[in-house]
C-alpha cells in the first residue's frame, strides 16, 4: 500500500514535469527536429548530465537502495540491429504523433482525449511486435 502510494506520487511528479516542461507538446518535438530551439536538447542534455554523474556516484560508492539492497543496473543486450531499426521506427512515430510513451499518458490526463487513440495504437504496435518478434532481426 505504501509502495503503491510512493509510485503513484512519483508518477504524478513525472506527469507534471512532462507537461510543464512542454516535452509533451507536439510543437516542441517538431521544433526539436527542425533544430529551431535549444529547449528539448537542454532538457535531455541536462537530465543526462545529472544522470551520468549520479549513476557513476551510485556505482563507485556502491550506494544501496532504500531497502538496503545492492543496486543492479542491468546492461542492455549486445547488438545493434534491433536498436537501430527499432529506434528509427520509434523516431518516425515520435515525429508524427509528437509524443513518446510518457507524455502519451500525461496528455490523456490533461484532457486531450484523442491521445487515447495514440495509446491504443501504441499498445497494438507493441502487440504486433510481440507476434512478429521471431521473424525480426535482433
Amino acid at each position: 500500500m505504501i509502495n503503491t502510494i510512493k509510485y503513484l506520487l512519483t508518477g504524478i511528479a513525472f506527469g507534471i514535469i512532462m507537461f510543464k516542461s512542454e516535452a509533451a507538446s507536439w510543437f516542441r518535438i517538431v521544433e526539436m527536429f527542425q533544430f529551431d530551439s535549444f529547449h528539448m536538447y537542454g532538457i535531455i542534455g541536462s537530465a543526462l548530465a545529472v544522470g551520468v554523474i549520479g549513476i557513476q556516484l551510485i556505482k563507485r560508492n556502491k550506494v544501496k537502495s532504500f531497502s538496503g539492497e545492492e543496486i543492479i543496473i542491468p546492461p542492455k543486450a549486445k547488438g545493434w540491429k534491433n536498436y537501430l531499426f527499432g529506434g528509427t521506427i520509434f523516431g518516425l512515430g515520435w515525429g508524427l504523433a509528437g509524443a513518446c510513451p510518457g507524455p502519451i499518458f500525461t496528455l490523456i490526463g490533461a484532457g486531450f482525449l484523442p491521445v487515447i487513440v495514440v495509446l491504443a495504437s501504441a499498445i497494438a504496435g507493441t502487440f504486433v511486435y510481440g507476434m512478429l518478434r521471431p521473424k525480426l532481426p535482433h
Binding site: G86, F90, G91, G93, S121, A122, A124
Partner: peptide, 22 residues
C-alpha cells in the same frame, strides 16, 4: 495519429526502450 502511435509502440519495443529507457 493512429499510425504515429503504432510506430511508437512497435519501434520502442523492437528497440527495447523509448526516450526514458534509452
Amino acid at each position: 495519429i493512429a499510425v504515429g502511435g503504432f510506430l511508437v509502440g512497435f519501434g520502442s519495443r523492437f528497440a527495447g526502450g523509448c526516450t526514458s529507457g534509452h
